[in-house]
């Protein structure tokens, strides 16, 4: 589904990603854990061009979509194709980023309508079925400012799903939520995982990673330090840095 090869990312002189190699296959739920500043979010954001890598290669669906060396583009690919490939990846943000000037329903239908040219009727029907899935069908005409954090994030998940992505990226989806609202969002994500959605989840929710993840990646200081099944990572991590991190958070 997605592959990163020798990916480096610098912000000025700061090296945020150092030689990342990662492959995610269809149906996998990959949970990325690690201390803040370890490059987890940046890695995710590089996948759909929200950040541009400094060097390395990114493949989506077997197609090379980004190749850079020393910050220079090596690959000629049209902006349109990049947009198409990116829209196969649904993204959920920590801060929700719902469109505040649109109702919940409009938030879900705008991108399918203007990007995929889906008809109004079709877009609305699908949006309503998604809202139903996240348990918010009754909120379709509300503006986002009227929703709780947990509801906002469920709408944001539904909005990403409205583009029928092949894969979902979650960037700390529960970190901005009040503790009592975390559960409802995780529940929706579990449902997605059960339905076979391929997911990469950057998270601090170790319970979720252990229960739902098919693979857990521990990142520290811009590198992937260790990756394995949740059982191994959480009960028998090999690397000392993984051990000390888990000791602190568990």
């Amino acid at each position: 589904m997605i592959k990163l090869e020798n990916v480096f990312k610098n912000f000025g002189t700061l090296e945020v990603l150092k030689d990342i190699n990662l492959e995610v296959k269809q149906g996998e739920v990959v949970c990325v854990i690690g201390p803040s500043g370890s490059g987890k979010s940046t890695m995710l954001r590089c996948l759909n061009h929200l950040e541009r890598i400094t060097s390395g290669r990114i493949y989506i669906d077997g197609e090379l979509m980004d190749e850079r060396f020393d910050g220079k583009e090596q690959l000629k690919i049209s902006q349109e194709r990049v947009s198409q490939l990116c829209s196969e990846l649904g993204m959920v943000f920590q801060q929700f980023n719902l469109f505040p000037h649109m109702t919940v329903l409009e938030n879900l239908t705008i991108a399918p309508k203007i990007v995929k040219k889906v008809s109004e009727k079709e877009a609305e029907a699908y949006a309503l079925s998604l809202l139903d899935m996240v348990g918010l069908a009754d909120k379709k005409d509300e503006y986002p400012s009227r929703l709780s954090g947990g509801q906002k994030q469920r709408v944001a998940i539904a909005r990403a799903l409205a583009m029928k992505p092949k894969m979902m990226l979650f960037d700390e989806p529960t970190s901005a939520l009040d503790p009592e609202l975390v559960g409802e969002v995780l529940e929706v994500m579990k449902q997605l995982a059960r339905d076979g959605m391929t997911m990469i989840v950057v998270t601090h929710e170790m319970g979720f990673a252990r229960e739902v993840g098919t693979r857990v990646i521990f990142m520290d200081d811009g590198r992937i330090v260790e990756e394995d099944t949740p059982e191994v990572i959480f009960s028998n991590p090999k690397h000392e840095r993984t051990q000390s991190f888990l000791q602190k958070v568990l």
Partner: peptide, 27 residues
Amino acid sequence: IDKGQMEAATALGMSYNQAMFKIIIPQ
């Protein structure tokens, strides 16, 4: 306008112009 709005719009596949005229300017 919060830059998360442009990010969310482009992550949904919108072009810069679509994001500008449908998401950023109306806000």
